[in-house]
Structure formats: structure tokens, C-alpha cells
Design a protein around this nucleic acid. Structure first.
Lengths: 76, 76
DNA sequence: CGAATAATTTAAGCGCAACATGAATTTCTC
DNA sequence: GAGAAATTCATGTTGCGCTTAAATTATTCG
């Protein structure tokens, strides 16, 4: 989402204000230090940045995502 | 994410178990009745379904996403 | 350099909603 | 119509998204 920010010529501070969340929260979100997010927040970020969700949240498969909670009951 | 489910040949019940959340919660998530989600949950869903995030969460711009919280201070 | 500005981090606290469980109800399949 | 699957309701817990405030750490720039 850094690209989108630059493209829009906004500072993090601006984004926070336009999205309606605190700088603190935005900073933590950007740094991956929050465990979840409200869809409304995601929506506002995308809307303000005029960018797709994939610019804001990404996922890469990691084997550890299958570890703990699931009784690995399934075959391939 | 319905496609991914079918592709994997899983029932919602199975997904819930493999992901490690309740059927209730999964059902509400799928129906868009929750306001947010934990990244760990998203990750597990994607991992189990072997699908990208975009199969699980999507966003489409809506003008209303810019309405309330942001002091529309910004010019074009 | 050293101010100003931006960004990150810490701390403390509030309030909601993500999550669970259990049961009822509805919907889909045969 | 039986049975499975899915959704919904009710109730409860607790984690954490979020805030404010302040301190700390980059950046930028004359």
C-alpha cells in the first residue's frame, strides 16, 4: 500500500485522518502488528487510496497456517 | 470461496473443523455478517482451501466508503 | 548540524465484536 | 419424509481493534 500512498501523494497522517482511524492504529496495521481488522476499515483504506484490496492485505501460504488448530485429518 | 470449497471437495462443516472455527462463525463470515476478521483466520481459510485471499475476501468500491468518518478535506 | 515534520512505539483503557457452545430452524439432497 | 448440511438465535467470554496521550525514533531540509 506504500505505492498507492505515494501515488495519491498522501502522508500516513493524511491517510489516517481520511480513513478515520488514529495514526497509531494505521501505523500498527501497516507494520503488521495487529491481529485483525474491521472490514469497514479495509474498505475505507481502499476507497481513499483508490486501490484494490490486494494492495492493502496480502496472503502467502505458509505451512504453519495448517498446523495448530486443525486436526490434520485430511489427506492431500 | 464457494468454488474453492467445491474444488477441494469439502463441506462447510469440514472447513470449519479444519480451519478451527465454529460452523456458526464460518457461516456468518461467509454470509458477510461479521464486521471483521482475524488475519489468522483468513490465513487458515486460504491455506486449507489452497486459494488466494481474493477468493475469500473481496472489495468493491462504494462511494459510501468515503462518507462518514473522513472530514472531506481533500480536493480531487 | 538542529529544527521541524513524519512515523513508530508504548502505555492505559474502553467497548465491541470475533469467537465459542448449544439448540432450534431452515434448506438442500435423495 | 428422513438425514445431512447450513443458517440462525441466544447467551456468554475475552481478546483485541481502536482511542488518546506522550515519548521515542526516523526523516527531511535549510
Amino acid at each position: 500500500m506504500n505505492e498507492a500512498l505515494k501515488r495519491r501523494g498522501l502522508k500516513g497522517k493524511d491517510l489516517a485522518r481520511l480513513v478515520g482511524i488514529s495514526e497509531t492504529q494505521l501505523s500498527m496495521f501497516r507494520a503488521g502488528k495487529v491481529k485483525g481488522v474491521r472490514f469497514s476499515t479495509l474498505a475505507r483504506i481502499c476507497a481513499v487510496l483508490e486501490c484494490p484490496l490486494s494492495d492493502v492485505v496480502t496472503y502467502e501460504f505458509s505451512p504453519s497456517d495448517l498446523e495448530s488448530p486443525a486436526p490434520t485429518d485430511e489427506e492431500d
